[in-house]
Simulated assay, not measured.
Amino acid sequence: MIKFFFCVLFTLSLQFSYAQQDTLSVEEKESLMLEELKNTEDEGFGINLYDPLAPSKAAFYSAVVPGLGQVYNRSYWKVPLVYAAIGTTAYFFIDNNKQYNRYRDAYKQRLTGQIDEFDGVLSNQNLIDAQKQFRSNRDLSLLLVFGAYVLNIVDANVDAHLQQFNVTENLSLKPEAQQNFLTGGLNFGLSLNFKL
């Protein structure tokens, strides 16, 4: 019976304490909400809350359409750089592939006894060497296209991570210069500030 009495008393005390919290006026609730919103907005580059999925979203968007992850991160100036890197390397891949096919076809024509565009200009060994060189350049260009594509994805992911990095004044490393009163000169240093 005593346990029942204490349980009822505990439950009523919780109800009264909960009721006291609800006695705030509408203006006080709004001011508390605005204060809380202001505190969360001051914590970074204007990002209100930490979104753990933002880096993976940015990387996914860049994997689907190169440059879309940079748009998602609002780094619009990086989009032309992404397309310039991928476009330039793709251009060299296409050009080297075209030149490789040109010298290969000329060598095949020469082997069948036909007259090719390099007849009298290049020997058979020169055609073979040109094929090797353009094939090597083509393969390297393909690796660079792939590297530019992967770099686009990595950049979007890292940029999304860094946008959520806390850069408030609560933790800072500042250069500091103080006058030395004994010698009259300046003492330079760094101060590490941490505020709770």
Rank of each mutant, 00 (worst) to 15 (best):
K57Y: 07
D119Q: 02
D139I: 05
I153S: 05
D159T: 14
N157F: 11
V65L: 15
L9A: 06
A160W: 01
Q164K: 03
P66A: 05
S191H: 00
Y72I: 07
I94E: 10
D139C: 01
K78F: 03
S123A: 13
D95T: 11
G147F: 13
F165L: 03
A54I: 04
L122G: 09
E41V: 00
N187M: 13
G69T: 11
I115G: 07
G120L: 07
E41C: 00
D105K: 08
A106I: 14
L182M: 02
D119C: 11
L144I: 05
A177T: 11
Y91E: 04
N96Q: 12
Y149P: 02
L140Q: 04
S56I: 05
G147D: 14
A130I: 07
A177I: 08
G67N: 08
G113Y: 00
T89K: 00
K195V: 00
N48R: 14
E30V: 05
E117T: 06
Q178D: 15
S25F: 07
F4Y: 08
Y83T: 04
T23V: 04
Y18Q: 04
V79I: 10
G120F: 12
G189A: 03
W77E: 11
Y103V: 02
D119Y: 15
V154T: 12
V167T: 15
L171I: 10
F60K: 06
N180R: 04
G46W: 11
T11Q: 13
S172I: 06
A54L: 06
I47W: 13
R102S: 13
L37R: 03
L32E: 13
S191R: 08
R138I: 03
Q125R: 13
F6V: 05
R74L: 15
F165E: 05
N48P: 14
N170C: 01
I86Q: 03
S123L: 07
Y149M: 04
D42W: 14
I128S: 07
L49W: 14
